[in-house]
Computed example of a mutant assay.
Amino acid sequence: MKTLITPLQVLRLAFGDGEQLPPETVAETDIAGAEQRHIVPVVGRALYEKLLAGSYPDFRNEYLAAPAALFTRLAIQPRLDVRTGQCGTSAPKSAWGQPAGETALRALRQGLRTQARTLLRRAAEHLRAHRDEFPEYDPENDILNRCTTDGGFVQIR
Results as ranks from 00 to 15, higher is better:
residue 61 N to A: 14
residue 128 R to K: 11
residue 123 A to P: 02
residue 7 P to Q: 07
residue 80 L to H: 04
residue 119 L to P: 06
residue 58 D to A: 14
residue 129 A to K: 14
residue 155 Q to D: 03
residue 149 T to C: 01
residue 34 A to G: 07
residue 85 G to H: 12
residue 51 L to W: 12
residue 113 R to P: 00
residue 56 Y to C: 06
residue 107 A to K: 13
residue 153 F to T: 03
residue 110 Q to I: 01
residue 58 D to H: 11
residue 96 W to T: 14
residue 137 Y to I: 02
residue 146 R to Q: 08
residue 19 E to L: 03
residue 139 P to Q: 08
residue 115 Q to K: 11
residue 74 L to Y: 15
residue 56 Y to R: 12
residue 138 D to H: 11
residue 50 K to C: 08
residue 36 Q to I: 00
residue 128 R to D: 07
residue 85 G to P: 05
residue 58 D to T: 14
residue 117 R to C: 01
residue 8 L to H: 11
residue 140 E to T: 13
residue 34 A to C: 02
residue 81 D to V: 00
residue 94 S to I: 01
residue 139 P to W: 07
residue 62 E to P: 00
residue 149 T to M: 05
residue 121 R to G: 03
residue 99 P to Q: 15
residue 132 D to T: 15
residue 79 R to P: 00
residue 39 I to A: 06
residue 75 A to P: 01
residue 10 V to H: 10
residue 70 L to V: 02
residue 53 A to S: 14
residue 39 I to H: 08
residue 38 H to D: 13
residue 142 D to Q: 06
residue 27 A to W: 04
residue 13 L to G: 09
residue 41 P to V: 07
residue 147 C to T: 04
residue 106 R to I: 00
residue 135 P to F: 15
residue 137 Y to K: 09
residue 109 R to N: 09
residue 73 R to G: 03
residue 97 G to H: 12
residue 92 P to E: 12
residue 28 E to I: 00
residue 52 L to G: 02
residue 39 I to G: 08
residue 125 E to W: 02
residue 143 I to H: 05
residue 21 L to D: 05
residue 132 D to C: 00
residue 4 L to Q: 11
residue 32 A to M: 03
residue 126 H to I: 01
residue 150 D to L: 12
residue 150 D to Q: 12
residue 21 L to H: 13
residue 32 A to H: 09
residue 27 A to L: 08
residue 72 T to G: 10
residue 29 T to V: 02
residue 68 A to T: 13
residue 32 A to K: 11
residue 46 A to W: 07
residue 2 K to D: 08
residue 123 A to M: 06
residue 57 P to W: 14
residue 137 Y to V: 06
residue 51 L to K: 12
residue 135 P to K: 15
residue 134 F to K: 15
residue 4 L to S: 07
residue 81 D to Q: 11
residue 146 R to H: 06
residue 14 A to V: 00
residue 28 E to T: 06
residue 104 A to R: 15
residue 106 R to D: 07
residue 114 T to R: 14
residue 68 A to V: 06
residue 49 E to P: 00
residue 57 P to E: 12
residue 45 R to S: 08
residue 95 A to E: 15
residue 127 L to F: 12
residue 5 I to S: 05
residue 50 K to P: 01
